[in-house]
Simulated scan of single mutants.
Amino acid sequence: MTLQGLDELDRRIIYELQRDARHVSSRDIAADVSASPSTVRKRIQRLEDEGIVRRYGADVDYGRAGYQLFVQIVCTAPIPERDRLCEEASGVDGVVGVRELATGERNVVVTVVGEDGDDLTRIARELSALGLTIAEEQLIRNDASLPYAGFDSPTTPDRVRR
């Protein structure tokens, strides 16, 4: 399924799930878009089955959870090995995100958490041992994931933007 295959209801469901999947129900979404809760539930199931909605997760404050270091490690991976290296990097203890970039020499970004510098050193060594070349490490102060506003249809009557 592509963006062209998504209708206004699909886009609104995606927006609401991105905004706060834990606290929005199919009944809430249905009331907003004048659809039945069962229709919304079926659409959510279809979006999951099609791989458009891939997972639901918690937004964790790592500092409050005891991990004072939240770091982005920018790496270079040989193009033929990039997919495999990203997969293997996701298995390193302390890695909480792996982003594969399509262009540029610095083509893998690994997000990690650690309690101290020793954790970061261990993680960097493990990533290097996999075959990733570390270009730089950046301490993250704050990170936010936001719902894509393009899914929040402005054509819905009486829609209140959040």
Score class of each variant (00 low, 15 high):
124 A>G: 11
72 Q>L: 15
136 E>A: 14
102 A>K: 10
125 R>A: 10
102 A>L: 11
146 L>T: 08
139 L>M: 14
67 Y>A: 07
92 V>Q: 03
112 V>Y: 00
105 E>V: 03
105 E>C: 01
84 R>L: 12
130 L>K: 01
132 L>S: 08
89 A>R: 03
153 S>N: 14
136 E>I: 00
154 P>I: 04
94 G>W: 05
101 L>K: 10
143 D>N: 07
97 G>W: 06
154 P>L: 07
99 R>A: 14
140 I>A: 00
122 R>W: 00
106 R>D: 14
144 A>D: 03
114 G>N: 09
109 V>R: 00
151 F>K: 10
88 E>A: 14
88 E>P: 02
128 S>N: 13
142 N>D: 13
109 V>H: 00
64 R>P: 03
50 E>P: 05
147 P>V: 05
91 G>E: 14
67 Y>M: 07
107 N>Y: 10
72 Q>V: 05
118 D>V: 02
56 Y>N: 07
93 D>L: 14
127 L>N: 06
148 Y>V: 06
86 C>A: 15
54 R>M: 09
88 E>M: 10
53 V>N: 09
117 G>S: 10
98 V>Q: 06
46 R>N: 05
78 P>G: 05
99 R>D: 12
81 E>K: 10
117 G>E: 12
125 R>I: 03
92 V>D: 03
49 D>S: 12
81 E>S: 13
114 G>L: 09
138 Q>N: 14
59 D>R: 13
143 D>H: 10
136 E>T: 06
69 L>G: 04
77 A>S: 13
153 S>C: 11
105 E>M: 02
69 L>E: 08
65 A>T: 08
74 V>C: 06
54 R>P: 02
115 E>H: 09
72 Q>P: 01
69 L>C: 04
66 G>Y: 10
95 V>T: 04
53 V>R: 13
145 S>V: 10
104 G>N: 05
104 G>L: 04
85 L>E: 08
137 E>K: 12
123 I>F: 01
98 V>I: 09
107 N>V: 05
132 L>D: 00
129 A>D: 15
52 I>Q: 11
88 E>I: 02
53 V>D: 09
113 V>L: 03
68 Q>H: 06
62 Y>F: 15
119 D>H: 14
115 E>F: 02
88 E>H: 04
92 V>H: 02
76 T>I: 02
107 N>W: 06
100 E>A: 15
126 E>I: 03
146 L>I: 11
74 V>P: 02
99 R>M: 14
96 V>L: 03
128 S>E: 14
130 L>T: 02
96 V>D: 00
113 V>Y: 00
131 G>I: 02
101 L>N: 08
74 V>I: 09
85 L>V: 09
98 V>T: 07
83 D>T: 10
74 V>W: 00
121 T>N: 12
54 R>S: 05
84 R>H: 08
125 R>N: 15
144 A>F: 13
137 E>C: 06
154 P>N: 07
49 D>I: 08
105 E>A: 02
119 D>S: 13
100 E>D: 11
62 Y>N: 10
114 G>H: 08
95 V>L: 09
81 E>N: 12
90 S>M: 11
139 L>K: 08
143 D>P: 01
154 P>Q: 07
60 V>C: 07
